[in-house]
Simulated assay, not measured.
Amino acid sequence: MRKGNNKKGYSNPTSSSYSSASGRAVNEWEYYDQLYNTYANKSCGMIDPEGIERLCSDLQVAHTDVRILMLAWKMQAEKQGYFTLEEWRRGLKRLRADTIAKLKKALPELQQEVRRSTNNLDFYTYAFKYCLTEDKQKCIDIESICQLLELVLGSEFHQQVVSFVQYLKIQTDYKVINMDQWLGFYRFCQEISFPDSSNYDSQQAWPSIMDDFVEWMRSK
């Protein structure tokens, strides 16, 4: 979801409710914003990489943990390593987490949500786009792709990822990976028997890198 969309569960930031405990009107975003300001860099008005590291420390997860990428997906964060206030509100509202304790508790549920078939491809696609850090960038270098594959698919399709990463590291024909190739490997994991690849048909519309990978696998 991009800026401007107002989907169910993400309401008007100006709305408020009455707090009987304090006897005053409370903006519904107040607690989300307080938590945001704990990590935001005041000079840029965003949570930057340093703020994300402090967030990870409080959540007791590594900044390289896939759950942080899942959190970015839930926020639909646009810039790698940065969370805007709008993205933060959007993501944490959906997770119903306005404290660190609640956010920490929500992470396992977020993992389950991502693993559902209806969300898995969307998350996988988002992960690629999130790593496009330059304007008009459409491809990602092989080294970064190998790390990203292990992060987003390594637990679910371990053998396929290990083999594909091994192939990517020794081959010399491809220096970068584009979205079509990225999605081609996801489809391969979903549809093709492994390791024999007996139902792989190169006459179908596969990216050429998948043809080369399967040929390499069969030659082994």
Rank of each mutant, 00 (worst) to 15 (best):
L35K: 13
R187T: 12
M70H: 10
R2A: 08
F213L: 08
E156F: 11
W73N: 07
M179P: 04
T14I: 10
D98H: 07
G91K: 06
K105C: 06
F164H: 00
R96I: 13
G91A: 09
Q80C: 11
E150H: 08
F194L: 00
S20C: 06
A72R: 04
Q181I: 03
T172D: 13
L35Q: 11
K104W: 15
F213N: 03
F164W: 00
E30A: 11
G4R: 13
F157G: 03
S22A: 02
N12Y: 10
S163G: 01
T99K: 14
E113A: 10
I52P: 04
C189Q: 01
L121N: 00
D98S: 06
P108A: 04
Y167G: 05
S19N: 15
K136A: 13
D180F: 12
S19T: 09
N6H: 10
S208G: 05
N178Q: 10
Q204R: 12
Q147D: 08
S193G: 09
L103D: 11
A21H: 02
Q60M: 10
L103N: 13
P13H: 08
F128M: 02
A25Y: 13
R218C: 09
V176D: 11
R24H: 03
R218G: 10
D196F: 06
A62T: 07
Q204S: 10
G4M: 01
D196T: 11
N5P: 03
W206I: 11
T64F: 11
P49G: 08
N119M: 08
V161S: 10
F194Q: 04
Q80W: 09
R90F: 15
N178Y: 05
M1V: 12
W73T: 12
G23F: 02
I52A: 08
P13T: 04
G4F: 06
S155E: 15
F213Y: 14
D135A: 12
Y124K: 05
F185L: 14
D48M: 11
L153D: 03
K105E: 12
E78I: 07
D58Y: 04
K129I: 01
E53S: 09
Y39I: 06
I177N: 03
I47H: 05
Y200F: 15
A106K: 12
I140D: 04
L59M: 15
K42L: 09
Y130R: 07
G154E: 05
Y174M: 07
M210S: 00
S16T: 02
